[in-house]
C-alpha cells in the first residue's frame, strides 16, 4: 500500500488546475473567473454534487453563482478542495463560513465555527 498516494494524486490534480489542464468548468465568483475540475468540485461539495451529478450538469462549462459566495470566501475553499489545507484568518473566516454553507460543505462549516469560537476566546 502506497500510504501517500491520495495526497500525491491531489497534488497532481492541483498542478493540473493551476495549469488549466483538463479543467472543465469556469466558476464566476464575484465576477472573478475560477477554473476547476467538475470531478473535484462534485467530490468535495454537496452543492456541486447536486448540480453536476445529473445530465443537466453535462453541458455546463461556465457557472455563475448569483447571490452566492464572494471570491474572498470561495477561493480558500477551492484551494482546500485541492490541497486539504483550509487557510483562515479572523478577517476571512466569516466569508469562508458563508461560502462553505452555500456549497454545502458541512465539515468545513463546523471547522470555521470552531475557528471563530476559538478566536473570540481570550
Amino acid at each position: 500500500e502506497f500510504t501517500r498516494h491520495s495526497s500525491d494524486v491531489l497534488g497532481n490534480l492541483n498542478e493540473l488546475r493551476l495549469r488549466g489542464i483538463l479543467t472543465d468548468v469556469t466558476l464566476l465568483v464575484g465576477g472573478q473567473p475560477l477554473r476547476a475540475h467538475k470531478a473535484v468540485l462534485i467530490a468535495c461539495s454537496g452543492f456541486f454534487y447536486s448540480i453536476f451529478r445529473g445530465r443537466a450538469g453535462v453541458g455546463v462549462d461556465v457557472l455563475s453563482l448569483p447571490g452566492g459566495p464572494e471570491a474572498g470566501g470561495f477561493a480558500p475553499l477551492l484551494d482546500f478542495m485541492y490541497t486539504s489545507r483550509l487557510r483562515l484568518s479572523p478577517a476571512t473566516a466569516p466569508a469562508v463560513l458563508a461560502a462553505a454553507t452555500y456549497l454545502q460543505m458541512d465539515h468545513v462549516v463546523q471547522a470555521c465555527h470552531r475557528f471563530i469560537q476559538a478566536s473570540y476566546e481570550p
Binding site: 467530490a43 486539504s84 465539515h107
Partner: peptide, 22 residues
C-alpha cells in the same frame, strides 16, 4: 507584523460522502 500562523490538524471527515450505488 505577520500574524501568528497556527496549524490545527483535523483528523475527522473533511468532505461529504457520495452515496454508494445501491
Amino acid at each position: 507584523h505577520e500574524g501568528l500562523v497556527a496549524t490545527v490538524k483535523e483528523a475527522g471527515r473533511s468532505i461529504h460522502e457520495i452515496p454508494r450505488e445501491e
